[in-house]
Write a protein that binds this DNA or RNA. Structure first.
Length: 509
RNA sequence: GGGCGCGUAGCUCAAUUGGCAGAGCAGUGGCCUUUUAAGCCAUUGGUUGAAGGUUCGAGUCCUUCCGCGCUCACCA
């Protein structure tokens, strides 16, 4: 025996397992003979019930409720399709098997297979009148027990819960097993991904996959995770964005590409940040950021409608309307609105910092002017519940975006915010290789000034651009945050099946 | 990384000023051939996150550590 029970409940279950074996029952058989899901069994019965027809089914599932009586018992099993009651009578399944049920050798959490004819109990519940009961999988650890009471008005009152966030995330399998609401979140997530793909496919984009392990990271402002290829003696980085690879494909004559995949950022964890997260990026040739705005509105609103059935959703007590057009506002106006400071009136870092502090706003020491401007957005972000497109960002924090023709300090970039969350970022992409190289160099200088490691310059990306890159608009979006909106989740961890947690520690030594 | 809060039975939670560690569900033993939060009777289960300290006495107070939550910071 490798595993040792850690408490009385597990010890008892282990004894029951051995009891089943000694009764000649394989608690983990290889073969299953399911003929109907629980939902199919109910539907099959209901179609023939009026005519007095009989339906025999074999259904499988986990025991989620038991009511054991002296000679007749009721159990509910649950499978992926729903719940179904088993009506188990000693006369029908025999003394020996009934005793196993009664002695709880077969109990909550176990998987079973039941064969019998469909019937209605005295109280009207569609059930299986079980003639044969087979153990499919014995559960050795007890799941939390949750009971539900259906009230007269049809609402379901719940007794007992499995709600400790740490345990729910660490043992997501148990969370999913007992909390159907959590299962639903990840159906919403799957539908979201499908809806996004469908929109982009219909728009003629090509779905591609680019390297996750990259010799040079780029395309975003973030610290990377570093790893190493042993045989090649090469350090590699887990990507922080897809951007530079996808734009190489613009050079390669695809008119539109997109990728949905994982990015990794070696930064703080928060309600809105997980070290690995799902990003959607697309690039389309021959469009600018105004056309990307239109695409963003249609992409997100169509996904909302496909996933939730409506472009209006409830999020954390607010009603959000995804229907285009979204409010479009300049970064200058929205930050002025929420900080009382007009950054255009303070064109250098020192002056802007002083102005912000005079208003009681946070202004980081040593931050560049662009950085201070970007930080001003933090005051506006929580207020942007309805979709907002914030346009025209400072050049020095946007090294991949094209400068506005009429203002060399601003670039053609927008971010959009929904539900108080930053959801996406987009711009008219630089396609002038010499401009791009200079921007990289300028950025490296800023980094050096800020005592940060210089961001590596991706020479191969510049080489690609020198072959000629069509004008194009690019777009990036945090898919997990979109799922937060669609599933009404306050926390990104709820939108991730297995969110990052610190290693489960014991005592400090 | 900083601040604040939390950690008690398998799950969800109590425990007065520092004074016998408890409840419900689950489990165990009974009764029960149409229950559905089934019910009734009896009952088991604890290194109170870990290690130290103060005290006659610590779940409670102090220190350190671990983990989680909120928040701030970090985040071209």
């Amino acid at each position: 025996m490798v595993w040792e029970p850690s408490n009385q409940l597990e010890a008892e279950r282990l004894e029951k397992l051995q009891h089943l074996r000694s009764a000649g029952i394989d608690p983990y058989p290889n073969r299953v003979k399911r003929t109907h899901t629980t939902a199919e069994a109910v539907a099959a019965f209901e179609t023939v019930e009026a005519a007095g027809g009989a339906v025999t089914v074999t259904v499988c599932g986990r025991i989620v409720r038991r009511n054991i009586k002296g000679k007749v018992s009721f159990m509910h099993i649950e499978d992926g399709a729903g719940r179904l009651q088993l009506f188990v009578r000693v006369d029908s399944i025999g003394e020996a098997m009934y005793t196993l049920v009664k002695e709880k050798a077969i109990e909550l959490g176990d998987f079973v297979q039941a064969t019998g004819t469909m019937m209605r109990t005295k109280t009207g519940e569609v059930s299986v009148n079980v003639g044969e009961l087979v153990v499919l999988a014995k559960a050795l650890s007890p799941l939390p027990v949750i009971k539900q009471q259906t009230l007269d008005d049809g609402t379901v009152k719940q007794y007992g819960e499995f709600s400790d966030p740490e345990e729910r995330y660490r043992q997501r399998y148990a969370d999913l097993a007992v909390n159907p609401d959590v299962r639903e979140i990840f159906r919403i997530r799957a539908r979201t991904l499908a809806a996004l793909r469908r929109f982009l496919d219909d728009e003629g984009f090509l779905e591609v996959e680019t390297p996750i392990l990259q010799p040079i990271y780029g395309g975003a402002a973030a610290r990377p995770f570093v790893t190493h290829h042993n045989q090649l003696h090469q350090d590699l980085y887990l990507r922080i964005s897809f951007e530079l690879y996808l734009k190489r494909l613009m050079v390669g004559m695809y008119d539109g590409v997109y990728e949905i995949g994982r990015d990794f950022r070696n930064e703080g964890v928060s309600r809105k940040h997980n070290p690995e997260f799902t990003q959607l990026e697309f690039y389309k040739a021959y469009i600018d950021y105004y056309e990307v705005m239109d695409l963003a509105e249609r992409l997100v609103s169509s996904a909302a409608e496909r996933v939730t059935g409506s472009t209006r959703i409830a999020y954390q007590g607010h009603e959000i309307d995804f229907a285009p057009p979204w409010r479009r506002v300049t970064l200058r106006d929205i930050t002025l609105e929420h900080t009382g400071v007009d950054y255009m009136a303070h064109p250098d870092a020192e002056g802007l910092r002083a102005a912000l502090r005079a208003k009681g706003r946070h202004a980081a020491d040593g931050a560049t002017w662009g950085r201070l401007v970007n930080d001003m957005l933090d005051y506006a972000e929580p207020h942007m519940m309805q979709p907002h497109i914030v346009i025209d960002y400072p050049r020095d924090i946007s090294p991949l975006a094209k400068v506005k023709p009429d203002d060399s300090q601003l670039v053609e970039r927008f971010e959009f915010f929904i539900g108080g969350l930053e959801i996406g970022n987009a711009f008219t992409e630089i396609n002038d290789p010499l401009d791009q190289e200079q921007r990289f160099i300028d950025m490296g200088r800023l980094y050096a000034a800020g005592d940060e490691d210089a961001h590596p310059i991706d020479e191969d990306y510049l080489r690609a651009m020198r072959y000629g890159m069509p004008p194009n608009g690019g777009f990036g979006m945090g898919v997990d945050r979109l799922v937060m909106l669609f599933a009404d989740l306050p926390n990104i961890r709820e939108a991730l099946l297995f969110p990052h947690l610190r290693e489960a520690g014991d005592a400090g030594e």
